[in-house]
Write a protein that binds this DNA or RNA. Structure first.
Lengths: 201, 201, 201, 201
DNA sequence: CATGAATGAGAATTCATTCAT
DNA sequence: CATGAATGAATTCTCATTCAT
């Protein structure tokens, strides 16, 4: 359920899969900390505790490692968003649940927030197209719930659903990077909830 | 002769200063477009139309060029923020004027917004400390106005001034990067105003 | 299989070590010929017949290559000096044997003598501290034998052991650089012996 | 009389000549400290307190500055050596006087000693040929006096005049670099005299 | 004579990727 | 599957020299 969780179950997987996870986790940490271009494959394999040869056995290139990280992270989030939407009784409930989950995830994975912020909007990256689609998927899910809330009358009618969705995402990512060291997790989530509540209702 | 030589000196000064500015402008464009690490000094000097040597005559390193760009940009913004606060009659007026200015600036300088997003929070950069202070200055100014509005009763009392300031900044920067190509400038600003109005009031 | 893989590892080890040695040898020749600063890494790797990349795989920097050269050279000499001292029956015998060895070494490795002369006393070099210690070790060994000779009465009592040691070393290095092309090896050594004999006895 | 003395009389010279001297003095210090290749023209002109333009007005190139320094220094020494030989009554007297002067000069101008040691024997320098001739002149003068002493019977007959001259020069230069910080000037000179006396008599 | 900005060739270093073992 | 040495293109930075003012 969490971004880096797969590795925890690695004991049961074959060694190959485990190595792959070690590399993805290491890539998340290193790239999240230093940015894609500044991160070196040497650092990543050292952090993962494997040789460079295996890294290139599992991934065709450094870019593919990065893609793998974002893909896994955003994929998990999209899945959870969908689950939340299905289970929620109304739009505001779905929105708040998604926000809470999103905020909690980014709080726990500051490096992933970093990664998102610093690399996703960048041109000239092999993965940017595909990854933007991944993020767009998240935004679309949020947008749909806002639109639904507006239609239902549970959210204020003047809201532009997509603009609001992007704004809320930007807000959460920024706050996560700013407040991870300054607020406790629950307090952080409460702040997010309160602010979003007023912005949307 | 004093006058003539002063004029000569001024002319030189101006030419030298102009070169420096050409480099800063070029650095903003290239780094904003590709990120600090991917941008090369070769590209920057080519964009500026000067030789590589002058770049290192005016700036000690590539990092110093980048620092110069962020410093100038954030410095300008802080100055304008202060001017706005002085001239505004009340807190909500100051906030909306600052937001409008901030949104307009980022809309016009998507590259700067990009640069801000991608490089500011990164570890291991020589400038991150100084630049974070610069950004903090902006946030502090906004925070102060929100606090004032809360005290005056013109903004809702449950707002956490600093958290709200950070959220609003994050929202504007993110929206600017997302919507520069999708919305006209005035429409973009209107969206920002509307969203912020509800979030804060 | 353990044996086979150990052999494989040894083979690799040897190949890697051989590359390192090729680089040290090439660095000695090039730096000895042109001086540290004028020598380029390009020249060194070309002389060694390897790529520039490996040079930086084996050595962190050009300075470290140079350190490696001096370290190995002075280390060998110190080892031989110690061996000579152990085997010699008296101080004059030890001194003459060391001198002969030292002269022969420098005669054969004019480039090393050059390197020693031109780089060792220079400020602002990363290695100068460590390398001065290395040279000091040689001087200390010679000093100790002169002191012993003075005590035993086999060398003249007015000698200042350390000053004499430094003088003799300076003399041999200078002569080596001057006479390598002008005198045959044995004749060179004989000259050194004769001069030192009179200076010390 | 001293190597860097010309500048002291600069007040009476025209400004142009004074500037030239400032540059030579600065070049001696900087190159003596860091070596020819590591020393930069920027450092030299900064040390001299003049602009880069004037430096290239007075000297065609960096190499010419260095040549100027060595030329002046060795020229002064050769002149003094000749004066000493003329005034001395016998060979040993001339030799001791020259040695004393040489030792005193190098003690006072450690940077010049450095310069001599690190740059003179180096290949690939524009000035090395001419400068070697300059140094050779000094060695020749010493050699001639040793030869005279051997003929006269005031020095031991087994001495090889030139080899002895080179050895003594190497000894003094090395000792100067080693002992400038460790011995007082007079003590340093006494040690040199004593050692040379025994080596030659 | 003086200044200091500008030039550009070249030097050190990095790093994604390959490949022999 | 695994290792880690090797490659070489790309990148940052330096610096002697020139030249407009």
């Amino acid at each position: 359920m969490a971004i880096a969780s797969a590795a925890r179950a690695a004991g049961k997987q074959k060694k190959s899969e485990r190595t792959r996870q070690l590399l993805l986790d290491a890539a998340l940490r290193i790239i999240g900390r230093k940015g894609y271009t500044s991160a070196t494959v040497d650092e990543i394999v050292k952090e993962a505790g494997v040789s460079k040869g295996v890294a290139y056995y599992h991934f065709k290139s450094k870019a593919e490692m990065a893609t793998g990280v974002l893909d896994a992270g955003l994929g998990n989030m999209a899945a959870e968003f969908k689950r939340i939407v299905e289970e929620a009784s109304d739009a505001p409930g779905a929105l708040m649940a998604m926000l809470e989950f999103f905020a909690a995830e980014l709080y726990d994975n500051r490096e992933f927030a970093h990664f998102l912020m610093t690399e996703l909007w960048r041109d000239g990256r092999v993965w940017s197209e595909a990854m933007r689609d991944r993020l767009q998927e998240l935004i679309d899910i949020i947008t749909a719930q806002i639109a639904r809330g507006v239609e239902e009358g549970s959210l204020r009618s003047t809201l532009d659903p997509q603009f609001s969705a992007v704004s809320v995402v930007g807000m959460v990512v920024t706050d996560a990077m700013y407040y991870t060291d300054l607020l406790a997790k629950q307090s952080f989530i409460d702040h997010i909830r309160a602010f979003a509540h007023h912005a949307l209702s």
